[in-house]
Write a protein that binds this DNA or RNA. Sequence first.
DNA 1: CCAGACGTTGTT
DNA 2: GTCTGG
DNA 3: CCAGACGTTGTT
DNA 4: GTCTGG
Length: 264
Amino acid sequence: MCGRYAATKDPATLMREFDALDGTEGKATRADYNVAPTKEVVTVVERHPRDADGAVLEDEPAVRSLRVMRWGLVPFWAKDPSVGNRMINTRAETAKEKPAFRKALSRRRCLVPADGWFEWKATDPGEGRKAAKEPYYVTTRDSSSLAFAGLWETWRDPNADPEARPLITFSVLTTDAVGRLADIHHRMPLVLPSQRWADWLDPNRTDATGLLTPADRDWLDELELRPVSTKVNSVRNNGPELVERVEPEPVNLDTALFDLPNPR
DNA sequence: CCAGACGTTGTT
DNA sequence: GTCTGG
DNA sequence: CCAGACGTTGTT
DNA sequence: GTCTGG
C-alpha cells in the first residue's frame, strides 16, 4: 500500500539528512502530516549535470538534490494528467515489465523522504456489523527520516506552451509486508535504509535488479507502529495530532451489550 | 491492421 | 457500485 | 489511502 | 511510446 504519509521536515533538514543540494526552487511545501496522492512534496534525485541544451554530461559527477514533485506518476505519453491519480504505487515485483514504469525504473529513481507512513488495519467485522478500519502510523524511534523508493517522470501538456515548465510526478514502490507490519496490512512501501540510498539513486545504474529487495526484517522491526486517530482519514485534517498515539477505540457501551455472549 | 490501455489496492 | 479528488 | 460525488440546463 | 486485444 502506502497511500498516505507524513512529511514535516524543512528543506534545510532534508539537505543534511540526505546529503543533497536544494533544488526545490522555492516551491518547497511546508510541514504536512497528511500527505495524500496529488499533493506536492519534496523528493531526492541524483543526476549528472546537463549542458545548455539539456544534454547529459556523463563525465561530470552526479549531483544529488531535493526536488518538489506531485504524487501520482503521469507517464509522458498521457493526454491528461489525471492518469497520475491511479499511478500512486508501483509493485516492485512487476515494475521492470510495466510500460508505465519500466523506463523510470531504469533511469528515473528517486527517494521520497517521510517522517512515517499510515496503514489502515481492517478489523474483523463480526456478525451483523460493518468492517472498521483502524489507522496506524509507522515511524522511526529516533526521528530520523524514512526514505521510500520512488520513480519519477516529467509530463508536458500537449496543448500548452512547449516552453512551460513540465509537471514532475512520482510513484512509490510497494512490496509484500514484512515482520510486524504484516499484522497490519499485507503490502508496504519499499523503505530503504540509509546504506541503500546511494545505490538506489545512482544514475549510472540502469539495471534495477537487486535494488528492489524489501528491507531486512530486523531493520523493519525497529520501527515504531502506533495506533492513531481516525482524524487522518480525511485529507482536510492536518497537524501533529494526526501522528499521536491513541489507545485503541474504547468499547462503546451500546455495542458492548450487543457483544455479550449469549447465555445458555 | 487499428483501438485502447497503460495501475494498485482490497474484497468476494 | 465506482470513479474522482485530495 | 479515504471521502465524497455520482447531473444538466439556464441564469446571474 | 509501446503493448495487447480484437
